[in-house]
Amino acid sequence: MFLADTVIQLAYDPGITPSDGGLPGLSVLKQVMGSLNLFGIITAVGALAASAAVWAWGHHSGGHQAEANGKKGVMVSAGAALLLGAANGVVAFFSALGTQVH
């Protein structure tokens, strides 16, 4: 009987859903997150430019280690820009996917 009670407790739906405007300061928090996202994108642009310069310098000077590090930097900064730009969509997708779990 103890196992059945545990399963019933796990299946209990508390009925909690995200609500907009539940706490004061939500608009300020949204502005801060938007600013941090923009700062990250601008940083990714700078990292991409620096990494591309290292890649080119390594290629033309024969520095294979610098060339490899430049390539890695380009890929990492491009991936970071992709994730930062898609942050809202990624979170919204997984949030909507999470609401379908019963």
Rank of each mutant, 00 (worst) to 15 (best):
N69H: 00
W57V: 07
G79R: 11
V45Y: 08
A66R: 00
W55M: 12
V7H: 04
H60P: 01
G63W: 00
A80K: 05
Q100C: 05
A87Y: 03
V45I: 15
D13G: 04
S35F: 02
G85D: 01
V74H: 00
A52G: 10
I16H: 12
L83R: 09
L36C: 01
Q65N: 13
N69L: 11
N69Y: 00
G34L: 04
V7D: 06
L23W: 13
E67S: 09
W57Y: 14
N37T: 12
F2P: 01
V45A: 15
Q100I: 08
D13M: 10
V54E: 01
D20I: 13
Y12G: 04
L97I: 08
D20R: 15
G21D: 12
K71D: 08
G25M: 06
S77L: 03
M1R: 11
G63F: 03
V28C: 03
T6D: 01
V28N: 05
L48R: 02
Q65R: 13
S51G: 00
H59K: 15
F93K: 08
H60N: 14
G40W: 00
V74A: 06
N37A: 07
A66V: 08
A81P: 00
A96M: 08
V45K: 05
A52S: 11
G98F: 00
F93L: 13
L23F: 14
V74T: 07
A49K: 09
G79K: 11
Q9G: 05
S61T: 15
F39L: 10
L26W: 08
W57N: 14
K30Q: 09
H59D: 08
G34P: 04
T17I: 12
T43W: 02
V101C: 04
